[in-house]
Design a protein around this nucleic acid. Structure first.
Lengths: 354, 354
DNA sequence: ATGAAAGCGCTAACAC
DNA sequence: GTGTTAGCGCTTTCAT
């Protein structure tokens, strides 16, 4: 049986004094005679007493807790965001309550409600669609300190975000300078991610700007289970494309795998560019060309912004748009090589040596 | 300015009734006249009232919150564990407070303390060294519902763990059946992870059993920054090894990259086997041979175990040792090919087609 | 220096 | 059917 944890009252009793004295001594606030102090201290130790954050929070109306909502931890980008956010919060004595929206707006709203009910002091979150998120609306209405991550600012909330359109333009520029004309944009859960759509729109606009063909939008709804097969089918249907920009690195890597299964050489038969800059992209051969972002800085920055508001500190500077990403070239991005792709011949080519 | 959120008292006042009535109506407990009900409901809506979990928890001494401690979210295995744990907790109406120990026992203990102070109803965690974790001791002393993940049972706590020794034995068996004799065990943060040590010990014992040479222990302390260089040096120093078992997949993939940079062909010049079964291992070419585990099942199961104890439900069955992993062969594991490794020649070999 | 008491938001036992 | 009240653990006046 779990015996009720000792309370301040138990300590007071054991020490033979009032609860106020215990509070004062243990918190180092107010004064006490050396004798009382000793008695309180030893009583507390004997009982294994620790303050309950509950009573304290109720009293102070501050839980020292931040809510954190991300779509999923399966994407390493969000795992890193959360990890960094947790660390930064911890440094300031705050805990993190984690919720995953699973790319679902209903869950997202529900999570926001729950966290608000738990009286979190602030929130850090990536929403599915910042422009019309009920969760954000709720938070804004409650006037709760909050910062977005990887979403562009919305509802007047601060945001640590990547400039998706500018980044996508760099990708288009890179494809163009390598001589690509027919490209595709590969997206997973397109309608459930404003990031993905911004990347597509920026890419399409830039392709036009550089005189390339409009990129083909290749949407995928399913999850990992059959992902490789779906990609295989998709790639087989669009042999004319010489380059594909994927909405994130994981998808790009999967596409690379699927393309290889089709006998395609990367980048000769098909160039691939991802988005995010996850470390795995550097472990494959050739490495994945991508838009590198910095999830750690984002997560940390977002917490910092929230805490600044909470603790009345100067608001931290948001990074300039240009500083939110950097393009990683080479590897899976090269000039298109004319001629029919063939698995056997491809196999005799030298692997890139980067 | 953020105005104080409305309390039950505000609603009672607005509805012209007592707070108990409000509580009864809004909680659907007890009865009320249709008229009162209507007034309360509309008052609550008008005020945007939501119960504060704080007052409720203080009263019920249950926070509907679970603590979760993992070493890091950088390892996808733990990211998945946490994600699954969060989902399972959510299904039962529980939230998750997340803490990362960063492979540090001090942080681990501190996290446990904080979570206990926050009055979490239970804990799910992976500790650095289960056998002598002060955090576990604390939790055990408090008699708090708790379940370990990826650690073997310790302090009498239930555990959803992989049978590291048995799994490592399968790895040794695989190496042996391919004709390997001189192998190495590559470990990151060896002394900070009982999992890693168990894998090594099981591997070493099994190598002996199969008549192979004792595996060379290759330890690495540093983090990612210079990881590839360190690995390159290490591999260059141990050219005699034909096979390496890495303590986790990420490390194995990094080793693969480093080996290639040295001009080694995988698996001809060097066979590699990882541990965990992260999805990335299937995206590289050749795929990574590894011990597949199921982090989602582990995370979910652990929460389930804790909740069972919390809600007085029958204790779920832990998986049998043999069911905690499965060996994935092929790909980066093949027979050792005699002859000096050379980058140029290696380049002309056919890539594996799995 | 220290104790008594109010009050944070809520639920439940008890009156009426 | 509904209001009053005690009490969950704590901090903080306010007396003494």
């Amino acid at each position: 049986m779990r015996s009720r944890p000792p309370t301040i009252k138990d300590v007071a009793e054991q020490a033979g004094c009032g609860i106020a004295t215990v509070s004062r001594v243990l918190n180092g606030t107010g004064s006490a005679s050396a004798d009382t102090r000793r008695k309180v201290l030893s009583a507390a130790k004997a009982l294994g007493f620790e303050f309950s954050a509950l009573g304290r929070s109720l009293q102070s109306s501050s839980t020292k807790t931040l809510g954190c909502i991300v779509p999923s931890l399966a994407n390493p980008v969000f795992a890193e965001v959360v990890q960094a956010a947790q660390q930064e919060a911890h440094r300031e004595g705050f805990q993190l309550i984690l919720a995953c929206s699973e790319y679902d707006e209903v869950l997202e709203l529900q999570a926001a409600r729950t966290l608000i009910a738990k009286q979190v002091d602030g929130l850090v979150l990536t929403v599915n669609n910042a422009a019309d998120s009920e969760a954000l609306e709720l938070i804004r209405d409650r006037n709760l300190p909050c910062c977005l991550v990887y979403n562009r600012s919305s509802f007047g909330l601060p945001a640590w975000a990547v400039d998706n359109r500018a980044a996508a333009r760099e990708v288009a520029r890179a494809f163009h300078s390598q001589g690509h004309v027919q490209t595709g944009f590969l997206a997973l859960r397109f309608h459930r991610s404003d990031r993905s759509r911004e990347r597509y729109e920026g890419f399409a606009a830039a392709c036009r700007e550089f005189g390339m063909a409009d990129p083909l939008l290749l949407e995928i709804e399913e999850q990992d289970g059959t992902l490789l097969e779906l990609l295989g089918t998709l790639l087989a249907e669009h042999q004319a494309l010489t380059g594909i920009f994927a909405s994130n690195d994981f998808l790009a890597l999967a596409a690379m795998k699927a393309a290889r299964a089709l006998g395609k050489r990367i980048p000769d038969d098909l160039s691939l560019v991802g988005f995010d800059g996850i470390s795995t992209g550097l472990l494959v051969d050739p490495h994945l060309a991508t838009v590198e972002t910095d999830p750690r800085t984002m997560g940390q920055g977002a917490v910092h912004s929230v805490l600044a508001r909470l603790l009345d500190r100067p608001t931290p500077d948001l990074p300039s748009a240009a500083a939110t990403f950097s393009f990683r070239a080479g590897g899976s991005l090269g000039p298109p090589v004319p001629g029919k792709a063939d698995g056997r011949e491809a196999a005799t080519s030298l692997p890139s040596n980067e």
